[in-house]
Write a protein that binds this DNA or RNA. Structure first.
Lengths: 200, 200, 200, 200
DNA sequence: AGCTAACCGAGACGGTACGTCTAGTCTTGCG
DNA sequence: CGCAAGACTAGACGTACCGTCTCGGTTAGCT
């Protein structure tokens, strides 16, 4: 018989990649349309034309699904390109964070992820791991700057990195991601030279 | 008169402060015992021996109640004492934030609040207002430092302030609030003198 | 004194007849507009611009108020007029019942009363008393007929009376109060001559 | 495997008859123990160890559930047996009604049903349909009597039937179901031969 | 080639919490 | 001291999702 109905069937005793894709796609759409509060497994299942158990089979919790949706988006990878100067590197990094989160999709997903992590230990763990890796990667920028002699050798790379990310988080989580050039420059100036008055 | 019966009565056509207090107290207890996910209006009502409509009469949403609970706790005032030096002031500020949030109570409430703000616009708004006020207050420390000549006159006070708060948020929201003295000192060093290598 | 303000004041330590009237009037209006399910003390209080305790002070329960509303309407008294013949008397009686209940007001109130009586013993008692009195009054018609020699002397007046009232109840409670002349005549024929075939 | 746990599970994407039975049974028990006012969906759900949505899934309203409970009880069938004489048939019918309603269960349910029908149109409709069918069934007794020549050919069967049912309703709804033999005989006499004095 | 094991969509299940509604009680402040 | 007003506790209402379960059907891969 011809397959006319829009329903997917099983493809045997193995995970159906079509279903997985449909679920992730639906999850993202639901998250964007309804926000975190509208992001329910039921809604995702309905939109993906999938059964709830199919979702629970592959993602143990709502948080896990959320995390997966985020990872899918992470392919817009932060490359930490070497611009030759530490200021250029950091500015690129900060701008890439802001740009990525300003795209409605990614920002909303990440916000949801952070929110979920405050209640769900598994998400918290996953987020921690993800952030640690990110700090490590970003830390390379600092280490490059130290190698070039631009950056104080006693500056702890991971703390510097965290200050940048924390600043971006702060803006994302309080809806203040829109920054003008001057603000960004002011932040970089502070980070590079500190607040101490050199005259004093 | 001796209060024997466990039931509170109405005190007429006006808000009963006893009920308000009982509800806030119960809300805090419930939040601590069950976490954000266990924080339900129903549970609060039951614990406070209050009717649900009484809660909804005075707090339009779960988030409003949560925020109110936090506000009550905030009165453990961050005084931004003038220690005489900018380094002393900032260290005091950062430590007071960390200490407050390390007390299980306050930290958990604030985490919940931030999480809720990611889904609920009303909470988001309320949190934004609260944070702006806090940045303004903290900014005074920087302005004092500038008056003393310790701090660069072109350092934007509110951005400095935000860097500190953002760093604390970052630690709170990723369960890394436990910091040793060295880490705090390293952070303050970076903030005061920046990462630029003065040798270069 | 001219009553301009929509609010009534107390007239001292005694029952205020204005309030009583306003409450009864409001109760009737509410009952008609919202049906039995919409008939709440709260709604009546609001409409009468009366406080709930004022209602509870004078009527111990919702049912009592309902009963009072009905009694107020009973002034459209069934007179059991002497038409000279038993058939005329009974027809008048049946028609007066039907007519009264067909007026939306009285019918709705009586239906509500019967309904309430199924759950509330006080209403049940009140209804029973009322119905007994009614049967007694209507029984007089039968007794008059017996005196005239029209009616079998061994016909139990109160059972006859009840058969008529029960028939009307049945129609009222199942929304079948609309009867044509033929139906009424058929009922009276049955009541007067029975179903037994005189030929047999 | 042995069924040890007291919880019922789903049996797939279809109605679970076990749940249905448990809910109906619980509904009846709750109705009897608490009366109509104590008959809440919540109480039924708790007693049946069922979720509220399970009840609402299959019964659109409290009234629907109530009606269903009554229907189950009705299967204590009124058989309208042919006793050979019209008087015997009618007596059997009346006694079977009285007996059924005198059993606390059935009577209480039916009273509740009638009460509910006065406020809720859906119940009203359902009750009307049920009663019409009942009148039709009972009408057969009269038609049999007419065939035998016992009953006047011009006696409208459904009106006769209604007079009997209405009389029983009247007694049920006013707590006067206890009747002695004499009363029943008197009623039947009136129904059969009417009130007209044959001497006149 | 048949059997089995795991997959699939679908949706019912027992539950929990939601936010609203009404009941009936109580107190204030005005007159 | 009665009145309008309205807050109080209590708990039912009907709805939305949760995470689990079973159904009936499908297909791949092992026997």
């Amino acid at each position: 018989m011809v397959e006319k109905k829009p329903t997917r069937r099983s493809i045997g005793a193995q995970r159906n990649p079509e279903s997985e894709a449909a679920i992730l796609e639906a999850a993202e759409a639901v998250l964007l349309e309804g926000g975190l509060s509208g992001f329910t497994i039921e809604a995702v299942a309905k939109r993906a034309h999938a059964g709830k158990p199919t979702i629970y089979r592959w993602w143990p919790s709502k948080a896990a699904l959320l995390l997966d949706v985020y990872h899918r988006h992470k392919h817009s990878n932060f490359t930490y390109i070497d611009t030759g100067t530490i200021r250029g590197d950091l500015k690129d990094y900060l701008l890439s964070l802001i740009d990525a989160w300003r795209k409605e999709t990614t920002g909303a997903i990440f916000r949801s992820l952070v929110a979920e992590a405050q209640a769900d230990p598994a998400t918290s763990e996953a987020l921690a791991t993800y952030m640690a890796e990110r700090r490590r990667q970003a830390g390379d920028m600092i280490r490059r700057g130290q190698a070039r002699g631009e950056v104080r050798p006693d500056a702890e790379p991971e703390i510097v990195t965290e200050m940048i990310a924390a600043f971006a988080w702060s803006r994302l989580l309080t809806n203040r991601l829109e920054m003008n050039e001057a603000e960004i420059e002011a932040f970089l100036d502070l980070l590079l030279t500190g607040i101490r008055n050199p005259q004093a």
